[in-house]
Every structure is written in C-alpha cells, then in structure tokens.
Design a protein around this nucleic acid. Structure first.
Lengths: 113, 113
DNA sequence: TGTTGATACATAATATTCTTATGTATTATT
DNA sequence: AATAATACATAAGAATATTATGTATCAACA
C-alpha cells in the first residue's frame, strides 16, 4: 500500500529536514531510498518532487551542499546550515503537534448520536 | 498558534468526510466553525478552500445536498451518500495509518550517531 | 558485449489544491 | 446606522506535487 499522493503534500520539507537532522549529510537519491526503507515502501518520494525541494531549501539558506565524485558519477551531499537546524526543530515540532490534533479529530466518535 | 497552511493540504477532504460521518449533515459554514472549535483555533479552514472541496466531493457522488432556508438566508446541508460513507472510512483509515508512519519517522533518533 | 536495472542528477509541462481577494446578501449586535 | 457574524460563491494567483523526459555512470547477466 502506498499513501495517496495528496497526503505527502506539505510534509516533504519537514521529512527532508528531519532526515538531515538525524544523518548529518545525505544526497538526494539516498533520501528517497531512506524514506522508502523507513516506511516499508508506503512513502515514495519522487525525484521530480525532491530535487526542486532541495534546491528551494538551499536557496533559503537552510541547506548547504558539497559535491563529490564517486568514480565519474557526481553526488551532491546536503547538510543543515545553522538556521537549517533551527528550522528543522521548528518544523518537526509543528508537524508532531499537527498530527496530535489530527489524531484527536479522527478519533472523535459520533457527535450527533 | 495556527499551523502553517501547507500542513492542511491533502487532509481537507478527509476532515470533511470524517465530520460528516460523525454528524449526519452539516453545512459549509458550520464545518469551518466546528473544525476551529475542535482544534482550539489551530486549524482554520478558509471558505475559498472549503466550498470548492465540497463541490468536488458532491460531483464525485460522495456527498448529497439539501437546501434549506433560515428566514431568507439559504443554507446548504451536506451529507454522505452510500459511497461517501465507504470513502470516509477508507480516507480516515489511511490518514490514521499515515500519521503513525509520520510519527515513527519523526521520533527516530540520530542514525549517524 | 550489449541490454537491463540501479544509481544519480536535473528540468519542463501539467495538475492539484490551496491562499487571497472579491462579491452578494441576510441577520444580529452595538 | 454601522459593524460583525452568518452563509453562500468564484476568480486570480501561488505553491507544490505528478508525470514525463533527458543525460550519464555503473553493475550484473546472458
């Protein structure tokens, strides 16, 4: 089972920031695989969504990059800047809070009964 | 505190379907107020988001409407169709599952340590 | 050795879904 | 009389994803 894509919307930035908070540095493809693995294939981040997001986070100054070559193949590592670390904490807290609120909403029983 | 708007994306349909599953019938404005109340103002559904969503759910056959007049003011009640009830259950289950997955992701500790 | 699948980046066209702004009108409150 | 709340609706624009496409390297296998 893969979640309907609309659910991912709005959480991608937070997922990326959280993974980078946990792993110091990661490259794009690695992020897609890590998320796939950690969620038992339930969340699959597409490259068309991820790369523009990484570029946006970088241009916001939240991520910094180092490019390395593995053989002849380029690999672009991303890591959190100082402000990125702060932002990561904020976004993770907000999402956790949001999920509690949603859980509460979804657990409500019939109000009309 | 109000959640950053991007978090709401993708959950609105599910919230609406869930509220209608709990309350038999509701009208648009009522839904905005109910969500606001249930979430202590943390989630505020805008009318520009809600009405198009209600119309879409209706045209998908998930909702049915009855129009009533309160004095001279029109009020449009929405309720779940048979397929809407099924869909509501599916969407709520999926979102609950998704939130567990996200919770797991966010609770992970440093992987690089 | 050549074809396939995995790795690894990227962007463009399109679709979806929201925000923000605007509009109309009734009713309640001050 | 003016303002806020109730109640509907739509349009322009922004944000963010999907889908498709492109390039290229590397590993495995037949």
């Amino acid at each position: 089972m893969i979640y309907s894509s609309e659910l991912i919307k709005g959480t991608l930035k937070t997922i990326v920031l959280k993974l980078l908070a946990d792993n110091k540095r990661m490259y794009g493809y690695e992020i897609t695989q890590k998320v796939k693995q950690l969620t038992a294939d339930k969340i699959q981040i597409t490259e068309g969504a991820l790369y523009p997001t990484l570029h946006a986070l970088e241009s916001d100054g939240l991520l910094v990059t180092e490019t390395e070559y593995i053989g002849k193949r380029v690999r672009k590592y991303y890591s959190l800047s100082r402000s990125g670390k702060t932002k990561a904490n904020e976004k993770v807290s907000e999402l956790a809070d949001f999920m509690n609120t949603m859980k509460f909403l979804l657990d409500l029983k019939n109000q009309s009964a």
